[in-house]
Simulated assay, not measured.
Amino acid sequence: MNTCDRCQENEATIIFTNDEQERLCGSCFNEMMAEEVGVTMETIPAAISLYDFNRKRRNFILQQRLYPNGIFLEATEDIEYGYQFAVHGELDCDQTESVTYGPWTF
Score class of each variant (00 low, 15 high):
99 V>E: 00
96 T>L: 08
15 I>Y: 12
39 V>R: 03
30 N>W: 01
6 R>S: 14
73 L>E: 15
42 E>K: 13
97 E>Q: 07
19 D>V: 00
18 N>L: 09
67 Y>T: 07
59 N>R: 07
26 G>Y: 12
91 L>R: 04
87 V>E: 07
46 A>M: 10
69 N>S: 15
64 Q>R: 07
35 E>P: 09
43 T>A: 13
90 E>V: 13
56 K>V: 08
48 I>N: 00
56 K>R: 13
2 N>E: 11
30 N>L: 01
91 L>N: 03
73 L>P: 09
103 P>L: 14
48 I>M: 00
48 I>C: 01
96 T>E: 10
47 A>T: 14
58 R>M: 00
38 G>C: 00
14 I>C: 02
61 I>A: 02
94 D>Q: 09
21 Q>R: 00
89 G>W: 11
70 G>N: 01
10 N>C: 03
102 G>K: 06
37 V>S: 06
14 I>D: 02
68 P>L: 06
41 M>Q: 05
32 M>N: 08
10 N>Q: 04
63 Q>A: 08
57 R>K: 09
18 N>C: 09
97 E>S: 04
28 C>Q: 01
52 D>T: 06
71 I>F: 06
79 I>K: 10
51 Y>M: 11
1 M>Y: 13
57 R>W: 06
67 Y>K: 07
38 G>A: 02
101 Y>S: 14
77 E>P: 02
71 I>M: 06
56 K>W: 13
86 A>M: 11
6 R>H: 12
68 P>F: 07
46 A>K: 10
77 E>V: 05
84 Q>N: 14
39 V>H: 04
97 E>Y: 06
38 G>M: 01
72 F>P: 13
83 Y>Q: 10
19 D>E: 09
8 Q>F: 06
1 M>L: 13
73 L>Y: 12
101 Y>P: 15
93 C>S: 14
12 A>D: 00
44 I>M: 15
74 E>V: 13
27 S>T: 15
58 R>K: 03
86 A>W: 08
39 V>E: 05
45 P>H: 08
32 M>F: 13
27 S>K: 12
94 D>H: 09
32 M>S: 10
69 N>A: 13
16 F>H: 10
84 Q>K: 15
20 E>P: 06
7 C>M: 01
3 T>Q: 14
65 R>H: 09
33 M>N: 03
11 E>C: 04
103 P>I: 11
8 Q>Y: 05
55 R>Y: 15
38 G>R: 03
69 N>F: 15
75 A>F: 04
19 D>W: 03
106 F>N: 03
24 L>Y: 04
18 N>M: 12
22 E>W: 01
60 F>Q: 05
101 Y>G: 14
97 E>K: 07
78 D>A: 04
71 I>P: 02
32 M>Q: 09
87 V>D: 08
48 I>T: 02
37 V>G: 06
59 N>Y: 04
77 E>S: 04
68 P>H: 10
35 E>N: 11
37 V>Y: 05
68 P>M: 07
8 Q>K: 07
